[in-house]
Nucleic acid binder design. Structure first.
Length: 492
RNA sequence: CGGGAGGUAGUUCAGCUCGGUAGAAUACCUGGUUUGGGACCAGGGGGUCGCAGGUUCGAAUCCUGUCCUCCCGACCA
């Protein structure tokens, strides 16, 4: 493995790529735009999944699985949604290959095996799910349906980036059906809160909750709620979305139910999702020029212990001391790794585990044994200290908690320092160019102005924050009246 | 999808202009000395030069096509 990663200041994009590859989160593949999530990266994803899955279940949801393929006729049923995705759909047209008679050992698509109806590889599952819900729902007694699925989806993106935008990606998609508008609205907002909770308390990534403008919202939705995050290069990243779908899909798929008063009405819907993109957010929110910095709550390895010894006698002595500590840590469900690999020297291991973002590193050698201490180094601040062996476990527990908190606070401070008000167009552009981050400004509320601003500044409206205060002002571009500020940023 | 750059040992790259035995560093293997921030010495193994065609006595090198990656742009929930 190469020792160098590009520094953030030299080339932020390259730094990001280097980090992903060299920390072994993922690798490129033989398929354009697709990536291989390596064991270390997948372990991280599993930890994220586990936490989210528990939150979904705690809020009453259950998991199910729907097919990868969507018949074209179903896909096009909800018009706005279908049009929104049409340009990036992979399509299956045939179901068989055959030997190429002109080219020994090669295969060709069998022209005889053309599908009657093309199958779309799902870019999202609303169509297949709502065509199914139609069969499941007759009465208000069948509602609500609160289903989530963990799945892969395919969106044929023109330009891809590891984790941030890949042709195939992993995600979860919740699809719920409700008897009333209020209930569906509540659901979509509740799930946004779940995402915000997860991002902030598990990933240590602060978020801004808000609502998308009509331009930016999900095709087929009445409202799209989102959590927006800020990366270290000052660009924004949408980390999760929750949609209030109104009755759009119920109408498209004719999903009606009889309410208590025996009147027939369309069902109200929501959908919500987060993807492996969160890993990109995690990397770019916290890491430094030495590698990843992972928050303890989702780190695949929380504590690594590295012995330093000159001979087998010392190694055994260390192992004895350390085994007791490992046992206690494991008892507390702390993910600990003891790396006594003889082939690698301690200095190499230090660098390696820093690259991989392990929150705590414990080092113990002969001179520690004499004093009955162990050296503890934290990844987030690079601070080292010596701790009495009798206090190690408690110290580790405290430090893991402290790191989690420190990472969040550090990211939040950076984020807060990068939300700036702009009152003139000059300020607006100047802030985007030089300070970067979110720019809070007035907007006249029209799609035309939003487009124009995007064209001129490359910045989009990330969201209208839920906590935006009423304040009279003038649109940054047109000078027309506005009653609250919205958040602009250049975004991933 | 347009413009630019790139693909040669596990990795990073040189060699290509001007065709003629496949190179370095690092990693790997063996032995030894080492081990508290990416060790050192000695010896050794490893590449049909992304893939497919073509030109040529001869192609990593020239030509054509194609695949994958990076950067910029357009596109994008």
């Amino acid at each position: 493995m190469s020792k160098e990663i590009t520094s953030r200041s030299a080339d932020y994009s390259q730094w990001y790529n280097d980090l992903i590859l060299k920390s072994e989160l993922a690798d490129y593949s033989a398929v354009r735009g697709c990536m291989i999530i390596k064991p270390y990266g997948y372990s991280l994803w599993e930890n994220m999944q586990a936490a989210l899955d528990k939150m979904f279940k705690d809020s009453g949801h259950v998991n199910a699985y729907f097919p990868l393929f969507v018949p074209k006729s179903l896909f096009e049923a909800e018009e706005a949604n279908a049009e929104g995705f049409a340009k990036e759909c992979a399509v299956v047209t045939h179901y068989r290959l055959k030997a190429d008679v002109n080219n020994k050992g090669k295969l060709i698509v069998d022209p005889e095996a053309k599908l009657e109806e093309e199958l779309i590889v799902r870019p999202t599952s609303e169509a297949i799910i709502w065509s199914t819900y139609k069969n499941w729902i007759q009465s208000y007694r069948d509602l609500p349906i609160l289903i989530n699925q963990w799945a892969n989806v395919v969106r044929w993106e023109m330009r891809t980036r590891l984790f941030l935008r890949t042709t195939e990606f992993l995600w979860q998609e919740g699809h719920t059906a409700h008897a009333t508008k209020e209930e569906a609205l509540f659901e979509s907002k509740q799930m946004l809160e779940v995402y915000a909770d997860f991002a902030e308390n598990f990933m240590a990534v602060p978020v801004i909750k808000g609502i998308k403008t009509p331009n930016e919202r999900f095709a087929g939705a009445e409202d799209t709620y989102c959590i927006e995050t800020l990366m270290q290069d000052g660009k924004a990243l949408q980390a999760g979305t929750s949609h209030f779908l109104g009755q759009n899909f119920a109408k498209a798929f004719d999903v009606k139910f009889t309410d208590k008063s025996n009147t027939l009405d369309y069902v109200w819907a929501t959908s919500w999702g987060v993807s492996t993109r969160l890993i990109g957010a995690l990397v770019m929110a916290h890491s430094d020029d030495d590698g990843l910095i992972l928050p303890p709550k989702i780190a695949p390895i929380q504590v690594v212990i590295i012995p330093v010894y000159k001979n087998d006698e010392q190694k055994n002595l260390i192992a004895q001391k350390v085994n007791a500590i490992i046992k206690e840590l494991k008892y507390l469900n702390i993910k600990v790794k003891y790396d006594d690999n003889d082939n690698l020297r301690p200095g190499w291991k230090f660098a390696q585990y820093e690259m991989k973002g392990v929150p705590l590193r414990l080092t113990i050698g002969a001179r520690d044994l004499e004093k009955n201490v162990i050296e503890i180094a934290r990844r987030d601040t690079k601070e080292k200290s010596s701790v009495d062996l009798n206090n190690v476990v408690k110290t580790v527990v405290d430090l893991l908690e402290g790191i989690q908190l420190n990472m969040f606070n550090r990211a939040k401070q950076f984020r807060d320092e990068h939300i700036t008000n702009a009152n003139t167009w000059e300020d607006f552009i100047n802030l985007l160019d030089n300070k970067t981050g979110f720019v809070s400004a007035h907007w006249d509320g029209t799609a035309e102005t939003e487009e124009k601003i995007k064209e001129l500044s490359k910045a989009t409206i990330r969201c209208i924050p839920f906590d935006a205060v009423k304040e009279n002002g003038e649109c940054i571009l047109t000078g027309k009246p506005s009653n609250k500020r919205v958040l602009f940023a250049r975004a991933y």
